[in-house]
């Protein structure tokens, strides 16, 4: 059963690194690594909407916030007591189960929000989605600011740090695998067709509304899961983590990587997470240089690092030529 081999190998690698990395890695570097993982999940999930399907969502941070707060509250109220009640089960397993439940809960709530936001706005062609998602992101942030039960402006502390390397990069592997398999299927082609010419896609029998909503809800789900990982990694949530700027940051990753390219999104997420850290030494000029580098990159490579192509690992080892997937 050849097709089960990669997932099994991935799980083994994740377990091994999960034990090893926190012991040998400088805690600061480890934190950056984890944030890279979370940003990869955000970028690839937004790529499903903005890159694959050609819809312009600018409220990804809103879905991330929904997932973050929902999963954090789930763990605080249900997950943590449940994990504690699982006597006889090894602690990492009990906490893992609790985290998994919280991530699914956060993801589902974000997906539900995505459905509510997406269905009315995606029926229409054009730029409605941008406006609606922009509004959504702001509404979510303001609501969180004003609900005391989830910490309001003070933030939400004390979230159990269940999100280990295994879970963050397990989700990274899942979202990349899902996006890749989707891209190579008839459903992925339907999304690409909508991106390239919505009218032609519809005239050829593609249910454009269904597929746009599907991509959007999937994107929202994984944004929610990324939010859940973020919450259970930092142990603390604050509404200021989910501003419009965060949405723009994720869009920058998708555009910089190349709309529709999964490996491009991954690379751009890595670069754009590292860049501000590397630039810490130049203090005040940090964000200026960051912005300048973005501008220079987009002028020199307007199609993004990868265009719509994928990095083909096989090609690196001379097995076959890199090919156009989309």
């Amino acid at each position: 059963m050849k097709r089960f081999l990669p997932p099994i190998l991935t799980i083994f690698a994740l377990v091994a690194l999960n034990v090893l990395l926190p012991r040998v890695m400088n805690p600061y570097y480890f934190q950056v690594l984890m944030l890279i993982g979370i940003n990869v999940v955000l970028a690839v999930s937004l790529n499903l909407v903005n890159g694959f399907t050609g819809q312009f969502s600018i409220g990804h941070a809103g879905f991330m916030a929904v997932g973050a707060y929902a999963s954090a509250m789930f763990t605080l109220k249900i997950g943590a007591p449940f994990a504690a009640s699982l006597t006889g089960v090894p602690l990492p397993v009990a906490q893992g189960i609790a985290l998994l439940m919280a991530l699914v809960a956060g993801g589902l709530l974000a997906a539900g929000a995505g459905w509510l936001v997406g269905l009315p706005s995606l029926r229409l062609r054009g730029d409605y989605l941008a406006i609606v998602t922009l509004g959504f992101g702001e509404i979510i942030r303001v609501v969180i600011l004003n609900v005391n039960a989830i910490g309001g402006a003070r933030g939400l502390p004390g979230i159990p740090p269940y999100a280990t390397f295994f879970w963050v990069f397990g989700v990274v592997a899942i979202v990349i695998g899902l996006a890749r398999n989707l891209a190579h299927s008839t459903h992925g082609r339907a999304l690409f067709a909508i991106r390239d010419d919505e009218i032609a896609a519809e005239a050829l029998g593609v249910d454009t509304t269904k597929y746009k909503v599907l991509a959007f809800v999937l994107g929202a789900f994984f944004a929610g899961v990324a939010g859940g990982l973020f919450a259970h990694f930092l142990s603390y949530l604050n509404p200021s983590s989910f501003t419009f700027i965060k949405s723009i940051e994720v869009i920058a990753m998708v555009v910089l990587g190349g709309m529709g390219s999964i490996s491009g999104s991954v690379m751009a997420a890595i670069v754009l997470t590292l860049l501000p850290e590397v630039l810490r030494s130049v203090k005040d000029f940090r964000m200026v240089i960051y912005a300048l580098m973005l501008i220079v990159l987009m002028i020199t490579r307007p199609q993004g690092l990868m265009g719509t192509r994928e990095l083909d690992l096989g090609a690196l080892f001379g097995r076959k030529k890199a090919k156009v997937v989309s």
Binding site: D196, D197, A200, S326
Partner: peptide, 8 residues
């Protein structure tokens, strides 16, 4: 002509 320009 309305082809899907970025597809094969």
């Amino acid at each position: 002509i309305r082809l899907f320009s970025r597809l094969t």
